[in-house]
Every structure is written in structure tokens, then in C-alpha cells.
Simulated assay, not measured.
Amino acid sequence: MNLRKLLVVSVVVVFTCVSLSHLAYAAYPSKVLDFVAPAGAGGGWDLTIRTVAKVLKDTKLVKVPMPVRNNPGAGGAINLASLQEKKGSDSIITVYSPPLLLIHLNGTTELSYKDVTPLARLIADYAAYVVPAKSPYKTMMDVMDALKKDIKSVKIGGASSAGSMDHIQFLIMARAAGIENLKEIDYISFDDGSGAAQVLGGHIDLYSTGLSEVRGLIESGDLIALAQSADHRIGEGVIADIPTCIEQGINETFINWRGLFGAPEMPEEAVAFWRETLQKMSETPEWQEACKNNGWDNVFLAGDEFVAYIEKVNEQYKEVLGAIGMLKN
């Protein structure tokens, strides 16, 4: 075969491969997708992935069905384990946030963010530190000053287990406020969803939670938010009146980022599709309206930048868990 014929054959082969790859990409997804919230109905993960599914459908960015199911348990560890049985799947899309890192670091599971396929960070929600309307604590620094005087004088509650998100997001602020004996702070977990009722009933002094999860109770005046964990004022109305921790002299933030992940070893064409499609979604008026309605910041990040972000916050969580003797992995 002469050189000219060889070049022609090579070009045809390359063109054919590219064309087939493009066709495969264009045909995906061609079947029902499996959208999974790793917790029960009504929480932040559930709301996030159902909102994603709705916006993708409404904008026609995805034209196949996207039913959402719940796979709760162990702070997301049950779902993480089940994903390992679906290696290579191109149809499973799940949502995670900081607990994906924390359940590995605190020893709940040997699995970690390295055992899923990061697709994109979508939103930032923030912590809210709330007290009942008649609480003696009027600012976040009031709470910190009380803890400095008597570390057992303030009972903190959260929906996540000890060593997971609601606990850690309070400890990060306590450490920044100069409290050294973090391990001795009383933290009570209400994983049955009763945390808001517990603080309203006076059974705990402060409830550390996600701002979106107590927004209604703040707007009604039943709960008072002493602070939220962003580096800027967020939301509208009463929510916009909530001061940041930074404004109160606690120079720290906590971002409850939420993003989408695929199964381990997700095919590259599927990964490319989701990163591109989710970026398009993040720019739509429908998504921006959903973020506004839910009090989310639209903080899209994908690819290597998303992975680098995960690795960075993972190191921060390690430090806090080490300080309270709960770092296992």
C-alpha cells in the first residue's frame, strides 16, 4: 500500500471513530435514568435532586424519564455501598454534599468520594444556627461566650450523627471563636427529623442545621437564626436579615455544597454529557429561579476543579474530626 492510500485509510478510520463516538454521545441518554437521593423524603438531598430532575425536564435538556427514588441510611453510606454494585453504570445519578466525605473520615464507611464519579457541584446552601424565640442567646458570640465559661452549659443539636455535617459545621465556628476543648461540647443527634421540635420545646439550646430546612420557622418567627455560615448576606426578607458569623467576629464560613455524582467508573461519554448538560442547566432562568426560591447560591463547578474543591474541604474536615478524636480514616 503506497503512502497516499495509507493516509486515506487512516483518515477514514479516524473519521469513522470520531463519528461513532459522536453518535454514541448524541444518543445518550436513551433509556430511563435512575435519580437517587441518599436520604428520606423532604431533606436537602431529596429537594436538590428532585429540583434538578424538574428543571432538566422543563428545559428539555434531558428528554428521557428521570424518576427519583430515596435510598436512605447511615448518612448516605447505604447508598454509597449500593453504588459499588453498579460500577460502570451510565444511568444512575445521585446527589451528595459534605457527608460524603465525613462518613468516610469518621469511620462510618471505608468508601469515600473516590468510589463515585464526581460530575458537578451545583449549589451552596448554608448552615443556620437557630434558637427558640425566647432564648437568652441573642447572638452567636453569646453562645460562644457561654461555652467558654462552662463548656457544658449549652446543648447543641443537629439532624446528623456526631462527627457528621450538623455537628462539624458548629465545631468549625466554635474553633474559630477560640474554643479549644471542642470534644467536650455536648452534641445531640436527632436523626429522626425532630430537631426543630426539640429546640422549640427547649430540650436543646441551639439547633445546627441547614438554612433551607428551617426557613419557614424562621420566617414565622418561631425560631431565631443567630447566624448563618456564608461569607455574605443571602436571601430576601427575614432571611436577608440573618447576620453572618464573620460579621459577629467569627472569621470562618461553612458551605453545604451539593453536587451530582455517577456510579464508579461511569463511562466517559456519560460523564462528558452530564458535565456539559448540568452547566447548561445552571445557566437557565428556570434553575436560577429555583435557586432563588430555595435560598441556594448557584455555584457550578465541574471536572478537575470540582475534584480539587472536594480534596480541599476534605482536609478541613479532617482537622476538625481530629480535634474531637473522631478521625478514623
Rank of each mutant, 00 (worst) to 15 (best):
E180C: 02
L147H: 09
D125E: 14
Y96L: 01
Y137L: 11
A196L: 08
D145K: 15
S97T: 10
D205A: 00
L100V: 08
I179K: 02
G195W: 07
K149S: 11
L182R: 09
A196C: 08
V154G: 06
L105T: 12
N106F: 04
D166N: 10
D191A: 15
S161L: 09
A176I: 09
M140R: 05
I151M: 12
A120K: 03
S160E: 11
T94S: 15
H167W: 13
T94L: 05
P136E: 07
K134T: 09
M173S: 06
I151K: 08
S112Q: 10
N181L: 00
T117G: 06
L122S: 02
Q169L: 12
T139D: 09
G201C: 08
L200S: 12
S160I: 00
K152N: 14
G201N: 15
D125H: 14
A174W: 14
A159N: 13
S112M: 04
D166Y: 09
K183D: 14
I123K: 13
Q198R: 15
I123M: 12
K152I: 02
H203S: 01
I179N: 00
G88L: 08
L111F: 05
V154D: 05
D205P: 04
P98L: 02
L182T: 01
I103L: 08
H203L: 01
S97D: 07
V116S: 04
L119T: 11
A174I: 10
D192A: 05
A146C: 11
T209V: 13
D142Y: 13
A146E: 13
T109A: 04
I92A: 02
L171T: 06
V131A: 15
D150A: 08
R121Q: 10
D166Q: 04
P99C: 13
D192M: 11
I123F: 15
A120H: 03
A128P: 11
S161H: 06
L111N: 10
Q198E: 15
V131Q: 14
S91V: 03
F190Q: 05
S161N: 13
Y207M: 10
P118A: 09
I188E: 00
G193K: 04
R175D: 12
A197Q: 15
